[in-house]
Amino acid sequence: MKHAHSISEMMEICLLAGKLLLESGAETYRVEDTIARLASSGGIESIEVFVAPTVIILSMRKPGQAEDYTKLVRITKRSTDLHRVTLVNDLSRKVSREFCILEEAKEKLKQMERDSSPYPPGMRITAAALVSGCFTLMFQGSWKDFLPAFIDGGLGYFLFLFSKRFVSVRFFSELLASCLIGVVAKLAVLFGLGKEVDRIIIGSVMPFVPGVLITDAVSDLMKGHLSSGMLRGAEAFLTAFAIGTGIAVVIAVW
């Protein structure tokens, strides 16, 4: 029963799980862990797996076989979906405790690949607006700046989500959104809606802070996945740079 799965089937399940995790922003060690756990519960004898933010290389051998099978998957899109990370994590635990068999696991993984996020876009834009307003207050802004920051952050996030459909370069969407944020903040102060441009802008760009990248970078570095940690740090830095440039353009031109 345990050895009933063919090696190619095993590889497919492992790589699918790894791909889902990596695309959703899981740490490198979690991806390697999950793959190793799935593989060993499928009766695989030797596993070598290398994970970087853009690639998974997996090589495994069944007992009694002479050769290793190796497969490589490239990861092209990366986003943040902690819900999916939790689901895949749960699934791999269940499999290793043999609560559910591998066919079932494969079905569930395929379904997770189709399912989208638990929150609709409207709700995410509202959340971004709320976050912006709250951060303006936290950075010693006055209550008068809450409303402009609320609107500004919502608009910025909306443009970010909208432009992501047409532009595949993420940094460009971020740059565009932060440009809009700068312009709207300036306009709000111009028309007497807000008091301080700086506080409104700071609050409104907060939804773009690459929090998951930062925490991943640190935990990857600490766990010894040096290349992954450096890559994620570079990605986080690029995001910050894009936001800064967008705002800088507005300030310089205005």
Binding site: L130, V131, C134, M206
Partner: peptide
């Protein structure tokens, strides 16, 4: 207390932006 409430809302809002599970 206001600081606590405001930062609570900001952090929970970020949870939604990162698609955190509802329980979290």
């Amino acid at each position: 207390i206001v600081a606590f409430l405001v930062s609570f809302m900001a952090s929970a809002g970020f949870g939604i932006l990162f698609n955190a599970p509802k329980k979290a």
